[in-house]
Design a protein around this nucleic acid. Structure first.
Lengths: 241, 241
DNA sequence: TTCGTCAATTTCGGATCCAAGAACGCCGTC
DNA sequence: GACGGCGTTCTTGGATCCGAAATTGACGAA
């Protein structure tokens, strides 16, 4: 069987997912030997994987002292959203004349599901019930799916790569809390999706662009409220120290 | 003496500069042993450096077959400029209210130098003289210096990093040719700088934003004409095969 | 008690060594 | 003469080993 990937690549992918998914919390120090035992390889491929993560900006590399999972400041988070807003605006503008009826139908399908999930989340936000993390993740995925249709049609791989890179880095390990304001923000998010969809349907690339930009900036506000950084609680055992 | 950097980092930086600067032409295959001899180290740090370059997208990594310096297609080049246009527009908008009188004075100083260089290049373009590569590089650096003032004031490190990353990848090994259209494009570039400067001076962030975006897109056109890809000629000895 | 010094331990960066996969060329066959 | 199988050689991926830097902790002096 021919080799399609190296162990360093495999390890890098796994660690990447775990870091952006919050499985490995920020500020965790990644010990080479620990990782080499976990993946049952020597330290050599582990170090190559860590180099990759460092180049992607997911970890900070301190010579002779190890690598540490980067925590993201509120300022950095805001900047990441600014970048996403500009690039999604661009992608949306480019995609608008390219979207096929099939694409639009898919967007409608995703948007229906997104609307349902939004209603559930809004009910939850109003009731002040403890957050259902799985529900939020599903909502987020539907949100991403909506935008992915646009990225796919835009055919701008570089834009897609950068924007999706800026997309991560927030589903960290922080606790979150329901809030009255959330209800409103969820509703707004849903409405913005529909507005974008309609602008595309009407063939107005400029309107779609402006809407997409505003939408991402609104998402920023939503995420900020959702995070409401109640400190870093509830670490998984085995990672902290 | 404490160690401030690793050999892998040093090697990566050197190779990075050489690739973006066109010293190492696209499609060159980088042999690990060759590099380890050149830098007088073993292959281990070399491979870590190559991993970094791969993560940055400068080289493509084919398992068990080595790394190859990525060549950039016209389409990719265009997309890189689209990204830069959006992000520079953002940075310019954010920077406008933050620029100090000192910053503006520095922009004026750079712009004066840029104007002189532009005049030289225009004369060259009109005369059809063989391109003076050093002059073009100097012009390009003055161009970058102008924008760097804006980036510095904007205080958006992520935006700066991405935009500067998209900035490279074109000063390749291609031959270039003078053209009548170039004269006009050079002049336009210079005028756009002044317009941006004036919009900032007038405190209009929105106008500066729009101008910055158009400026980068114009630069794209300029670069496309300058490159005029006459095939890949004049490789440095020692890199080709 | 607290601070500074120095040794022991841990962890990292890099060199060397070995196995596995790919490229190349030779030869035989059709 | 062209194509395909097979062994050699070259290059890469990964494991192991070693020296160096940093951290830790014990000890002693202020």
């Amino acid at each position: 069987m021919p080799t399609l990937s190296t162990k360093a690549d495999d390890i890098a992918r796994v660690l990447e997912d775990e870091i952006v998914g919050g499985v490995i919390p920020p500020d965790t120090v990644l010990r080479q030997e620990f990782l080499s035992e976990r993946f049952e390889v020597s330290r050599t491929p582990v170090r190559e994987a860590l180099r990759r993560l460092a180049a992607l900006g997911l970890v900070s590399f301190e010579p002779n002292r190890g690598v540490r999972v980067r925590s993201i400041s509120a300022h950095e988070l805001r900047e990441a959203f600014l970048v996403r807003a500009e690039l999604e605006a661009l992608a949306t503008e480019v995609a608008t004349p390219k979207l096929t009826p099939d694409d639009l139908a898919e967007m409608d399908r995703i948007e229906r599901r997104f609307g349902e999930l939004t209603l559930e989340l809004r009910a939850q936000a109003r009731s002040g019930a403890p957050r259902d993390s799985a529900l939020f993740v599903e909502w987020m995925q539907a949100n991403y799916a909506f935008h992915d249709v646009i990225y796919r049609a835009a055919e701008l791989p570089l834009v897609e790569r950068i924007a999706k890179g800026a997309r991560r880095t927030f589903m960290g390990d922080r606790a979150w809390r329901a809030r009255a304001e959330l209800d409103e923000l969820y509703a707004k998010n849903d409405l913005q999706h529909r507005a974008i969809r309609e602008a595309i349907g009407a063939g107005s690339a400029q309107a779609a662009r402006v809407l997409a930009r505003e939408h991402v900036l609104s998402s920023n506000r939503l995420i900020e409220v959702v995070l409401e950084t109640l400190g870093a609680a509830g670490r998984e055992p085995g990672w902290g120290r």
